[in-house]
Design a protein around this nucleic acid. Structure first.
Lengths: 314, 314
DNA sequence: TTGTATGCGTTATCAT
DNA sequence: ATGATAACGCATACAA
């Protein structure tokens, strides 16, 4: 449909195509008069220069690619909100792709972005995704949710989030706190959060009572029964909000309103359905915004930086 | 990083660059021997032709763009699952963008796709999005969730879904059925579903009791109180699962387990938390798959078609 | 079967 | 300040 080229515009204006190009690129060496004329014609015919052709000449065009792991993850969606929010303010376009924790897919998408005049990349890290896969793109890539020493990366304070929850419970005199988390193969959500719980227990002479499983509400439901085998349990900390859905459901069915449930994520639906649940804000929205900041900075200065997002009860 | 060009490969092989190009494009007019040699060198140096340059020569490359309205909509995510599922089978890449019900953003994204060597487009329609915006791209665009006469489109059976729910309730002898929906400015989820309820009531001599509001669980919660002002209400039909979250929550708090709740969407979390809720499968996953089918068919034959996805209790 | 020349829509380097 | 012209990396009609 848009078959107009810079040449057509040139003829339409009665000028050379180089002049049109100059106008397009804000070259100061063009008289105000012709500039306005060319601009008018461009607007009139709604002409847009071909990105492919521009790309061949090495022009950047304010587009960044985003590789998420799961489009239907509510936590990643929160981060995405932060990313898009900041991106929009800066006038950037975005393309989103899904990796589904598949390393090969990540590679395909990275290459695809590279080939499509994309200026920068934000990728959601996961436990299997090694640094060497991302390294070749390090000059324009920001990793999120995982720490990569040689890259620009944003990561969360997994240990701090659990610690904050535990400190609050401890302060409110809970002493028999169970923990429901996910398997340790997952380094951040699994291992780090579990370890934080164990450390806290050791430091405060609490006897630990932890169960680990998959990342979904069914697991939360099933593991609650196991945790309650410790009869004097008075609180349960969940690694994520999705687990907490299951835990709260189980407790509700058993009419156990004597047990305080805590979790990480600050999911609004969870808060609506189970208002008594204490959920900590993991800083996801802010993480998204920060990712954009760091990326823009990286593109401009080439400086690789890192940023750890703190959790809070807001 | 990938600075190799077709010319470099040609020199490396000791052949002309046109020969390399021919190998790249599976041109049969090249001897098996040189073909293998060139292929080997290409593989050795991990050479990939520039998409920008290819695009300028009008090459298609198995990529489709998807414009969703909200990335955090669970129903759109279900459709997306169907789309990506089918796309992967067919070896297509995807780029996803969000419109947030903003017509200008849709236009930007459409243009952006056009400029980036994208073969086909799937766009999620919404009430404000007119046909004329999409028309220019009709040769490679499929609209979903809304009926557009002049385009290839996939839409849901809004009226059928509500009717199926009501028929089931009627058959089970419910006679005082309330309805909680969303405002009629939304043509499909709002108007059509509401109308279907009203029609059913008229046809079966039931006195209607409907409330309309925003599309979220808070609305469902708030409107339930109004519905219950009709004291003998024995069932409530919700236009969507998200409303049903609020409705069920309200009824649970009031310990009203004498009221049957129904909704459209088949959300797994809803089923887990409120197993007694009856939710109908709106065919979202299948809609996604069909969208891809229709798009591929459109690209191949140029034939515009339509498809209405039926709901079912699976 | 293979190489040469030309064009795709830009930007950059020359002249003028 | 402006216009002709040469690249950019690739595909293709044409020549060999």
């Amino acid at each position: 449909m848009n078959k107009l080229t810079i040449n057509d515009i040139a003829k339409l204006c009665g000028v050379g195509k180089s002049t049109v190009s100059r106008v397009l690129n804000n070259d100061p060496k063009v008289s105000e008069k012709t500039k306005q004329h060319v601009l008018a014609v461009i607007k009139q015919y709604n002409f847009k220069p071909s990105r492919s052709a521009r790309a061949m000449r090495g022009i950047e065009n304010k587009v960044i690619g985003i590789i998420v792991t799961r489009l239907d993850s509510s936590s990643e969606n929160r981060v995405l909100r932060g990313i898009l929010n900041r991106l929009e303010e800066l006038g950037y376009e975005h393309f989103i792709t899904e990796s589904r924790f598949d390393i090969e897919l990540v590679q395909e998408h990275l290459y695809s972005f590279e080939q499509r005049q994309i200026d920068g990349i934000i990728v959601f890290g996961f436990s299997g995704l090694g640094q060497k896969i991302l390294q070749p793109y390090s000059s324009k890539l920001v990793a999120i949710a995982q720490y990569y020493p040689a890259l620009t990366s944003i990561y969360y304070d997994d240990q701090g989030a659990i610690r904050l929850l535990l400190e609050r419970l401890y302060q409110e005199n809970y002493r028999h706190i169970g923990y429901i988390g996910i398997h340790k193969q997952d380094y951040t959500t699994g291992y780090l959060r579990y370890q934080s719980y164990m450390d806290f227990c050791a430091a405060h002479q609490l006897s630990p009572n932890a169960c680990l499983g998959e990342l979904n509400y069914l697991t939360g439901y099933a593991l609650t029964a196991e945790i309650l085998q410790q009869p004097n349990t008075d609180a349960i900390v969940c690694a994520t909000d999705s687990l907490a859905f299951g835990v709260n459901k189980f407790l509700q069915e058993q009419q156990r309103d004597d047990i305080q449930v805590c979790s990480v994520g600050n999911n609004p639906l969870l808060k609506f359905l189970f208002p008594q649940n204490i959920s900590i804000n993991f800083g996801l929205f802010r993480a998204g915004q920060s990712a954009v900041e760091l990326l823009i900075n990286l593109l401009a200065t080439g400086q690789k930086t890192h940023c750890c997002i703190p959790s809070n009860f807001e």
